[in-house]
Design a protein around this nucleic acid. Sequence first.
DNA 1: TTGGCCGCATTGACTGGACAATGCAGACGA
DNA 2: TCGTCTGCATTGTCCAGTCAATGCGGCCAA
Lengths: 258, 258
Amino acid sequence: MTRLGRNPMYQQIADALRDRIAEGALAPGDKLPTEAELREEYDVSRETVRKAVGLLVNEGLVISARPQGHFVRKRQPMVFRPQAEFRKRPYSPEMDAFMTEFSAEGREPRQDIEVAIVEPPPEVAKRLHLESGELVAVRKRIRYLDGEPFNINDSYFPLSIVRDSEIMRPEDITRGANQVLAELGYRQERALDELYVRMPTPAETHRLDLSPGTPVAYHVVTGHTAEGKPVRVAITVLPGDRHVISYERIREVAGEDA
Amino acid sequence: MTRLGRNPMYQQIADALRDRIAEGALAPGDKLPTEAELREEYDVSRETVRKAVGLLVNEGLVISARPQGHFVRKRQPMVFRPQAEFRKRPYSPEMDAFMTEFSAEGREPRQDIEVAIVEPPPEVAKRLHLESGELVAVRKRIRYLDGEPFNINDSYFPLSIVRDSEIMRPEDITRGANQVLAELGYRQERALDELYVRMPTPAETHRLDLSPGTPVAYHVVTGHTAEGKPVRVAITVLPGDRHVISYERIREVAGEDA
DNA sequence: TTGGCCGCATTGACTGGACAATGCAGACGA
DNA sequence: TCGTCTGCATTGTCCAGTCAATGCGGCCAA
């Protein structure tokens, strides 16, 4: 391994390891060579080897289990289907097959719920069209699967419409918060989904127990009534290594194409 | 700054800088203190300072412009709306407002198109239900805005149905590849969208000119005819710092709630 | 057999130093 | 005036080393 190209040494080492992972010579769960072994192999200092391995960690390909070594990461995503709240069962056979493939079958779900009345964060206030000073109720949930945190979901409601309702109680609402809102006269007919892809904040890393190199999807749903009044903002933080987000779509206007 | 907690020093420095960014003391575009200044301020070695700043770079908060220094990153996402292909104009006023906010108004679009006949990657073959050995036509596009690459889009079609059609020519198809497919008798009535969030591969980093700490959304669309035959797989790679992905949803079955 | 203790391999944190690469600004020359 | 060249601040790469943290496996005692 020489410096023939102008790639730095740690890049070349990382590339070589990445190739071995891509080819399957290093399979998910396998142990990488130790730093000492890599040092030997490439005849470089330990810091250089560490930087190479660090790159792979930051790419999410490898995790470090100190002091046993570094291991090729496994990926086992489960389906997240935002449309489920308006359309319980998928209507196309393709979606059916897809969901079966990635089901959470046999894993045990759990969630922590916490309810509070707070001043809304600006992005929430804006989407709910709130005056400054108006308060919101927020249901904060962390969802677990087999004891591991899978995603964070914070749902915000204008306090004026949910005060004293079931939404204020920190228990699971089996029939769904949306149903409660409907019973209160605020049935959601439309929703707007926004998806941002970014690295997690330290707080998110901590709450979701993320390993380095794991990006997240930041999913914001704004629910509107038939009249266009926004009544709910739900923010979900989904770790990239644990989810596939999925939508199904159908042609809407006969003859229109693009 | 002491070691009172058990957070490593470089963490503490990164946290302090992150706070200053969050508070706005360091605004987007601002220059961070140089490594020498930070060294002075915290009385640590240069490598430690570099590791702290490196963290922020990996989080996508900061970019390095050598040798001018490090700068707080700006974010200017534009809307990516997968539903546009089946539904040209948004039908809810909320979506209208949202799209106006993030429009690409005034920026100059361009795209490079390349067409090839290849053996499909396994993930494509699987979604198109192809026998092993069956070939596909692929239209590879890189889309630019003001000269900067914005996303990569590779669309795969079973060779058996698009051979000799307009799809095989490396020119822009103004009326859309979907329209051509429809004219060939394979009109898509349903699509399944899958979204994966991960760090980019080195090839993607290069093609999209990504700075470190930028995750991507890997968006896979499988288009089906009314009979359920898959006729198109479109894979789009969207850099997280340049896009918001957005969907609008409506209640489908009166009375159903979740 | 079982429980606890300890050595050890391995990664993490940090220092101090050397030299390379790079783009900007200011000096200089035509 | 305008282009060119050079110095320099700043970040990038790499080395050689020290000490800390950690979990596993094996040893030893009850």
